[in-house]
Amino acid sequence: MSYIELSLQIDLDFAEIMMAELAELGFESFVETEDGLEAYIQEDVFDDLTVKNMLESYAERTAISYSFKKIAKQNWNEEWEKNFQPISIGNNIYVRADFHEAKPDFLYEIIITPKMSFGTGHHETTSMVMEHQLTIPHQDKKVLDVGTGTGILAVLASKLEAKYISAFDIDEWSVENTIENVALNNAKNITVRLGTIENEPEEKYEIVLANINRNILLQQIPAYKNFMTEGASLVISGFYETDITDIQAVAESVGLKKVAQLSKNQWASVVFKS
């Protein structure tokens, strides 16, 4: 199977949200570069016009240039291993791959092999959600992880002693990767599936996590509310500080109240309570 490689030059602050946008268009693997990212999609599902329209929609927000070329399938994991470095989030969380040295001094050590799925903790949106998680009691709680990516948020929820975590994603690559990362972290209480919020089985959760992007959040926050118990926490990210007003308006329209906020490099993460 041949692939199309998108070589994208863009401000690095846009890299993760761009990966989210491209994933929705069928791109299944990503490599971050010094000036943007490279993204890969199977040739038979590549829609040239749709991708170009999405990219051009960001032209007013940041300088952007791109090119496409056809390539043979690569060993994505080998490429990723050349670039991935372990990171710490605050003083409590250490995220590494299985080939990195362990650091037992950290309270929570998470092993992640992303296989190009986004969500390694390196981007501000992921790290902020994880920081919020540390402030929310998880013990014996049920957690819903929307758009799980690598499963990193679900794994942290498990380490924070959540009773049960349901994690899903629309991307097969992410689902396979999450299953692998759940096993690497010996998390026995995480269920992983392929799908969307629309076909999530009816259940109520004390914590809902959604690190996606602005447009999807604006559409789906009312749906998240339906899965929340009274007093539940909704932790969201994947948008800019300038988007908070719109995000908050939608959340308040369904009875949610903002209780916490973090910002890093113009990215934002907000916690709402039902």
Rank of each mutant, 00 (worst) to 15 (best):
V146Q: 01
N211V: 10
A249S: 13
S269M: 04
S269K: 06
N77Y: 09
W80I: 05
S253Y: 01
V270P: 03
I247M: 08
I110P: 02
M116Y: 06
I17N: 05
Y164M: 10
F272P: 01
I244Y: 09
A183T: 13
L217H: 12
E34K: 11
S237L: 04
T229R: 10
A251P: 00
I17Y: 06
Y66A: 09
I64S: 06
N177E: 04
H138M: 15
S2K: 15
I4W: 00
T62K: 02
E198L: 12
E198F: 07
A249M: 14
S57M: 03
I247E: 07
Y224H: 12
L262G: 05
G238L: 02
A23K: 00
R193T: 13
S274Q: 13
E32I: 15
E176S: 13
N53V: 08
L22N: 08
Y94F: 14
N189D: 13
M1A: 14
E198C: 05
L234R: 01
E230A: 15
S166V: 13
K70D: 10
D44I: 13
I10G: 00
K82F: 01
A23P: 01
T135W: 04
V192A: 12
G147F: 02
N53F: 04
L218R: 07
N83A: 07
Y58L: 02
N92S: 15
K257L: 10
S117D: 04
E60F: 13
A15E: 14
K141D: 08
E202V: 13
E28K: 01
H132N: 08
L8R: 00
T113G: 10
I197N: 12
K258W: 08
D171Y: 00
T33D: 10
A20H: 14
T62V: 09
T113H: 08
A183S: 13
Y58I: 02
K73E: 14
E56Y: 14
S263T: 15
F14P: 07
N185S: 12
S7E: 14
I165S: 00
E200Q: 15
N91W: 05
W80Y: 03
S88I: 11
S253C: 10
V250Q: 04
I71F: 06
T135V: 05
Q42M: 12
F27Y: 11
L234H: 08
Y108N: 09
P222W: 09
L37P: 01
T62H: 06
A59K: 09
S237R: 03
K159F: 11
K204C: 04
I4Q: 04
Q248V: 09
T178I: 04
M116N: 14
Q9D: 12
D13T: 14
M128L: 07
S174E: 03
K52Y: 05
S158D: 10
M54D: 01
V146Y: 00
V129G: 03
W173M: 07
I165Q: 06
